[in-house]
Simulated assay, not measured.
Amino acid sequence: MNTPIEINTQGNRIVYVKTVEVSELPREVREQAGDLDQLYAVHDSDGQQLALVADRKLAFVLAREHDLSPVAVH
């Protein structure tokens, strides 16, 4: 089953970047996060997490490298 991808007017797939508190993540992820308090998650339009990274800028760069259009979620 294919997951629908939201399309913007330029034909690019949109993904959403949001801040995630490390304290709210599973123990295994918290251990890997080291001394970070926040990570950045990249989600598709259905809310499925595609990536979890330490840096906001990196989240946007990774999305663009995969031909996705990142949008910040506040």
Rank of each mutant, 00 (worst) to 15 (best):
S23K: 15
D35S: 11
L25H: 04
E6C: 05
F60R: 08
E31W: 12
D44G: 00
Q38V: 02
R27N: 07
N8C: 14
I5S: 11
H66R: 07
T19F: 10
E24G: 08
R30G: 13
S23T: 13
L36Q: 11
V42M: 07
R13N: 15
V71R: 15
R30V: 14
P4N: 03
L58W: 05
E28P: 03
Q48T: 06
G11Y: 04
Q49D: 07
F60W: 10
M1R: 06
N12W: 11
H43V: 06
G11K: 03
L50E: 06
R13G: 11
S69W: 12
L39T: 06
V17N: 00
R30H: 13
I5N: 07
S23F: 14
Q10M: 06
N8W: 10
L62I: 04
Q38F: 14
H43S: 05
D35C: 01
V61K: 10
R30K: 15
Q32N: 08
E24S: 14
A72G: 04
Q48K: 08
D37M: 13
V61N: 03
D35G: 02
Y16M: 04
Q32F: 05
V61L: 13
T9E: 07
V20F: 12
R13C: 05
D44M: 00
E28T: 03
A63C: 13
G34P: 12
K57R: 12
V53R: 03
H43E: 09
E24A: 14
K18S: 04
Y40A: 06
N12E: 14
H66G: 00
P26Q: 08
D67Q: 09
L68Q: 10
E65A: 00
R64C: 01
V20I: 04
E6P: 03
E6V: 07
H74A: 10
L68D: 00
G34E: 05
P26N: 10
S45E: 04
D35K: 02
D46M: 14
V29I: 14
D44S: 01
L52V: 12
P4L: 05
E28K: 12
S69D: 11
D55H: 02
P26K: 03
A59G: 07
I14A: 00
V73D: 01
E24P: 02
A33Q: 08
D55K: 01
V53P: 08
G11C: 06
A72W: 13
A33E: 09
N8P: 06
T19I: 09
N12D: 12
Y16R: 03
Q48A: 11
V22C: 03
D46W: 14
L25S: 02
V17T: 02
P4K: 07
A54Y: 14
D67A: 09
G47K: 03
N8Q: 02
Q48I: 01
G47V: 05
V61S: 08
E28A: 06
G34R: 02
R13H: 13
L52W: 03
Q49K: 04
E21L: 14
D67E: 10
V15N: 06
V22N: 00
Q32M: 08
R27S: 09
G11N: 08
Y16E: 01
V29L: 09
V22S: 01
L52G: 12
L36E: 13
H43N: 03
R30N: 11
S23G: 10
Q32A: 12
E65P: 00
